[in-house]
């Protein structure tokens, strides 16, 4: 059962709420009765081993997936029953940084960042150009409007994708494995960017990762998901001193005995 270490702190308004969410793909149970709230103004990090449903959790927030049982709420609005058109006003308030960046290959960097602005805002061409330049400068990619995504490195692609995610001034930014596939220095650049955006734009954030360095650096609150359920929820210090051995093993990056036995049987 989840050990909610924040239970005694002053309740802050919940931006996103999961209420007893279950999700399975075929025989595989991915989310098994997840109930939790993501607080406004905080950066919450969702931790857990690969394949435990962290990205699935994020995709429920933007309506890319719907729960089999349970409900997902944006403030007080239930959003898991909404179709694409119903989700549109909610999606405009959310920026999403995809694991593979998901930049449109056929468009330039500038067009990629301008895409949500052209789709949803009534800004003039000049204003869009200025906003694109400003967002690119914010992520340290100034003067790269004319480049194609194929010309960029993995870290640069993430930064451009982040510029696109924040183009519409979202209330909430979702980061799906923002440092995966990057070297430690590039990862740290992304971590600094997450902190900078949180500071400058005052956005709430949910970061899904299994990179502990990143989690401890950017997270106000850390939630650990394992086997489709939350097994720990608290601040970085609270997680470090958590009593569950699974949490300690994950933080230390240590395989459990069953995994090691299976390895020796091979």
């Amino acid at each position: 059962m989840a050990e909610n270490l924040n239970a005694t702190s002053t309740p802050a308004p919940a931006l996103i709420r999961f209420k007893d969410v279950h999700k399975r793909f075929g025989p595989q149970v991915v989310l098994n009765g997840v109930t939790m709230a993501f607080t406004e103004g905080q950066t919450t990090v969702v931790l857990g081993p690969s394949g435990t449903g962290k990205s699935v959790l994020l995709k429920h927030i933007v309506g890319l997936l719907q729960p089999d049982v349970g409900g997902v709420f944006y403030r007080d609005t239930r959003i898991d029953h909404l179709n694409d058109r119903g989700m549109e006003p909610i999606r405009k308030k959310i920026g999403f940084l995809f694991q593979l960046s998901a930049l449109f290959d056929s468009m330039t960097v500038g067009d990629n960042v301008a895409f949500p602005l052209r789709e949803h805002s009534k800004l003039s061409k000049t204003d869009i150009r200025d906003r694109v330049a400003e967002r690119l400068a914010m992520v340290g990619m100034e003067n790269s409007e004319k480049k194609m995504p194929g010309e960029l490195s993995g870290g640069q692609r993430k930064r451009v994708a982040l510029a696109r995610a924040i183009a519409l001034n979202p209330e909430l930014v979702l980061y799906d494995e923002p440092t995966t596939g990057l070297d430690p220095i590039r990862s740290d650049v992304i971590n600094e960017l997450i902190l900078k955006l949180h500071e400058e734009l005052k956005v709430s954030a949910i970061v899904v990762t299994h990179d502990m360095t990143s989690a401890f650096k950017v997270g106000d609150r850390l939630v650990m998901l394992m086997g489709g359920s939350i097994i720990a929820d608290g601040t970085a210090d609270e997680l470090r001193s958590h009593s569950d051995p699974r949490v300690q093993r994950f933080i230390a990056g240590r395989a459990d005995e069953e995994d090691l036995r299976a390895l020796h049987r091979i």
């Binding site: 309506g63 890319l64 549109e88 999606r91 995809f98 694991q99 593979l100 998901a102 949803h120």
Partner: peptide, 11 residues
Amino acid sequence: TEQIDALRVMG
């Protein structure tokens, strides 16, 4: 490469 998901997320 999640580009179609990105389109949906961007409305």
